[in-house]
Design a binder for these strands. Structure first.
Lengths: 167, 167
DNA sequence: TTAAACTTTCATTTTTTACTGAAACTTTAA
DNA sequence: TTAAAGTTTCAGTAAAAAATGAAAGTTTAA
């Protein structure tokens, strides 16, 4: 396998993985492309490499920047804007996790809290419902907190120790 | 808010959360419904509660069973099949994580390994590509392994200790 | 101050994904 | 056996999500 083929395969795979996890395919592909580019790319470059329209490129680059995992760069003497991806993978993971927590998990938690707060005295059915949703609330909250904790892991000795034990 | 409204809200929210994470909405809704049902439900029950067709119910119940998070039950004297959800949330999380690892992450890892194995001697561009995809391979592998480790956490003292520290 | 270079927006179209419903299939009780 | 009760399959349809492209908007160098 030579370079062009490998690169393409990587971009396609990363795009597919994105879709499976609820991230728009093109967004994941642009990110993949920028990840493996040694130089910042212009919007034109992205359009050409992925064969996508200007609008699509613009919207997805914007989304990636909103997520904080792609940055705009300016080259002196050039009028165009260029883009690079966050390449530190720990940083990348933390940003994605935080963003998804904020956008998706936190709102779901609020609903869980609300629905688990109804009066359980009415029926056996209701009792069971309240119990289950309470458990779920606790569980999701715990999982969500873990994201914050993982963020801090590198900053404390026990975290690093644990990471070693976990290999 | 009374029971019926809360239940519906819960099912809708769980369905939406599912979609955002790449799990078909109806599948997530059925799972939500079964989670908060104190009794096993028949396919008819599911169809009626969620207003979905027989085919849809059948296919998604099957998918949930393939994932190992919904079980078939038989009531004595009844010909119909009934369904219950895995209600132990730790167990649920482990099963989902393992399944997604198997279906999505493992195949992606294979690709990452392949594409990062091309000969990097050709150009600077290629060198950078190989380096980045190698890093990504290591990172994803580490993350994937963590799933296995988390599975075992409850079985060893240091795991439990860590969980406590993490709250 | 303006026009060329570039970016964003969004109504429309395309693609992808999910759902329906009826026919085929399976199981079981009589 | 067989027919009633129940389940699965899948071709066709509907709904949802993403992409296009042209017009509107913005920036900048002269």
């Amino acid at each position: 396998m030579e370079f062009a083929e490998a690169k393409n395969k990587f971009i396609q795979t990363w795009g597919a993985l994105g879709s499976q996890w609820g991230i728009n395919k093109t967004m994941a592909q642009i990110h993949a492309l920028l990840m493996v580019s040694s130089e910042p790319l212009s919007m034109e470059d992205v359009m050409d490499e992925l064969r996508i329209s200007r609008g699509n490129a613009s919207m997805n680059l914007r989304a990636l920047m909103d997520w904080g995992i792609v940055y705009k760069e300016y080259k002196s003497g050039e009028r165009k804007e260029f883009f690079t991806a966050e390449k530190d993978l720990d940083e990348l993971a933390v940003k994605i996790a935080k963003e998804r927590s904020k956008r998706e998990i936190k709102p779901a938690l609020k609903v869980l809290k609300d629905v688990s707060s109804i009066n359980p005295a009415t029926s056996l059915e209701t009792k069971h419902f309240v119990e289950q949703t309470k458990n779920l609330y606790d569980f999701v909250l715990k999982a969500d907190n873990m994201i914050d904790k993982v963020t801090e892991i590198k900053d404390n000795w026990i975290g690093r120790l644990v990471m070693k034990i976990m290999r």
